[in-house]
Every structure is written in C-alpha cells, then in structure tokens.
C-alpha cells in the first residue's frame, strides 16, 4: 500500500505543474497583449501598462514568470487583482460559498442517487426501475442552465417554496435549490451507476452463499450487495467534487450566488489575467487532490487495484 500511495503521489506532481503551466501559458503568453486588452478601445497609456507589466512580472521571460507565479502560489502571496484587493482575500471570500454549494450538491446526489439506484437495481424490470431509468436519461439530457431556469421559475417564482435568488451570506437554506440544480446531472449518473453495480453483484457467488446460509434479505442487501456495489459509486462521487466546484459557474450565475464561478466569470469578462489564473489553479488543485484521495480510497477498498500495479 505504501508503494502505491507513493507512486500515486508522484504522479500528481507533473499533472499539477503541467496544468498550471498550461493555464498560465493560455492566459499570459498566447498572441495578444493581456495588458493592452485591459484598456479596451481607449489608447494604451504606456506608463500605466509598464507599471502593470512590472507588477505582474510580465516584463520577465516566460519561464521566470512561471516560476515566480509558482512561488506566489506556494507562499499564498497571490498579489492584487485589478481593483487593488489582495487576490488571496478574494479567494478566501468566494471559495467557502462554492465549497458549501458543492458539498450540499454532493450529499444530495449521493444520498438519493444511491437510494434510487439500489431500489431500481433490486427491482429490475419493474415499474419503478423503468420510470427511474427514463427519468434519469431525461435529466442527463437537459442542460443544467435549462433545469436551473425551469426550477427557479416554478419552485422559486410560481410556488414560492424557495428563494429564487440567493442573498449575500449564501446560507445553507438559501443554497438548497441551487445545490439540487447543480447535483441533478450527477444524481442521474450515480443512480445509473449504483443500479448497474447492484445488478452485477446480485448474481455474485458470495450473495448466493449469503442467501443460502439463511441470512435475512435485508442483511444480504445491506452488507453483501450494497457495500460491494458502492465501490465504483464512491469513486465517482469523490471525483465529482472537483467537477462540481469547477462546474458551479452556471448555477451561480442563475441564482446569483457570490461564489468562485461568478468571480471567475467577471475576471474573464474584464480580462483580469492574474485573478483567472489564481482561481483556476485552486480549482485544478482541488480536482487533482480529490482524485488522488479517491484513488487511495479505491485502493484501500479494493485490494486488487494496489496488487495489480
């Protein structure tokens, strides 16, 4: 296991370096001057531009720029955004909001996805199974912003069950509806994954053995079928945390949630390269680390993985 952890850990480093390099390159080094773009249609004020270039190390060769940027990540001294606030403080403000939203979405999709998937798998071919299968396909097919608008309009505006937009503090209660919208697509995946996995395990030898030795149906389902079926589901859920945080931009836009996605979107629109790079770096880091944790968890749950490699 130790060798496996070490090996997997070493794989993370090039991915992180590569992804940050890629983002940094895309934002700062492709043709076109990011500082000049800031001035829009107005003539470029050379003195201001030179000052900004110096502030963001853009007067240095590319490799030095990148290394200075890496240093700034590890010292968490990310510099100032274009309105003069420290980027680290901005991140500290927006990340907790999106993290709360993503975790709530994760709990929603995990709980209901596994529950519905288990029931559907145990009753394969019955009405519940067929309904749930078709419904999940439709949910996967409908884009998230359409779902968002429809739910916002009907539940938020027409029925008044939830606030259509989120207030400044983004409390847990306000975030319930957005979290459902964010998690719905993955909910359908979790459901289908659980169902397939349950179907596979139901015919396994150890389940037949457990039934044959007289265990109650509920114990067979809980201990022998469900636990073994959860391994791929847990992998998906873990990897989904990073995807949810990165994908929250649309949901945050619809419900006006002051999170990472909105800040990133504004930074992209106004051409704030340094803020874009910082936010994306943190998102990549979350994605890579959650994938690493999932792989380790997977290896711990399923010994075949670590012995194979």
């Amino acid at each position: 296991m130790t060798t496996y952890i070490l090996k997997r850990f070493l794989q993370v480093i090039p991915v992180f370096l590569g992804a940050t390099l890629l983002v940094y390159f895309l934002v700062f080094s492709l043709p076109g001057d990011p500082i000049a773009a800031l001035f829009g249609d107005r003539p470029v004020n050379e003195a201001v531009a030179a000052q900004l270039r110096k502030q963001y190390n853009l007067d240095q060769p590319f490799w030095i720029q990148y290394l200075l940027y890496l240093k700034s990540i590890f010292t968490f001294d990310l510099g100032l955004d274009f309105s003069g606030r420290p980027i680290a403080a901005v991140l500290g403000e927006v990340f907790p909001v999106t993290a709360r939203l993503a975790v709530m979405a994760l709990i929603f999709e995990g709980f209901f996805g596994i529950l519905f998937g288990l029931i559907a798998g145990l009753r394969k071919g019955k009405i519940f199974d067929a309904t749930v299968l078709v419904a999940s396909l439709i949910v996967i097919g409908i884009p998230i912003f359409v779902l968002g608008f429809v739910l916002q309009f009907f539940i938020g505006v027409q029925l008044g069950w939830a606030k259509p937009t989120v207030s400044a503090g983004a409390s847990v209660q306000d975030l319930i509806l957005p979290a459902i919208v964010l998690g719905l697509g993955s909910f359908a995946y979790v459901l289908r994954l659980t169902r397939t996995s349950v179907l596979e395990n139901m015919n396994a030898d150890y389940v037949r053995t457990a039934t044959a030795k007289g265990l109650s149906r509920s114990r067979v389902v809980r201990v022998h079928i469900l636990r073994n079926s959860l391994i791929p589901v847990i992998t998906f859920l873990g990897a989904d945390l990073g995807a949810l945080m990165g994908g929250a931009i649309v949901t945050e836009g619809i419900f006006n949630i002051p999170g990472v996605g909105q800040r990133l979107y504004r930074a992209v629109l106004s051409g704030e390269g340094p803020t874009v790079v910082s936010i994306v770096t943190v998102l990549v880091l979350i994605y890579v680390v959650s994938n690493l944790l999932v792989d380790l968890l997977y290896a711990w749950l399923d010994p075949r993985i670590r012995y194979d490699s």
């Binding site: 992180f16 590569g18 983002v23 895309l26 076109g32 990011p34 990133l264 994306v280 990549v284 890579v288």
Partner: peptide
C-alpha cells in the same frame, strides 16, 4: 497519459472559459 491527465484536470467548460478570454479568440 500524463499529458492527458493535465488536460483532464481542467473541466471542459472551465478550460473553454479560460481559453476564450485569450485576446485572439476574443477578437
């Protein structure tokens, strides 16, 4: 596989948003 991992670490929409703000694509 490592190169693949690097691109995989940026979700589709997120990566597209970053790439779109590049001055060339913006224009």
């Amino acid at each position: 596989a490592r190169i693949n991992d690097i691109f995989f670490a940026l979700p589709l929409i997120l990566g597209a948003i970053v790439l779109i703000q590049v001055p060339y694509f913006r224009a």
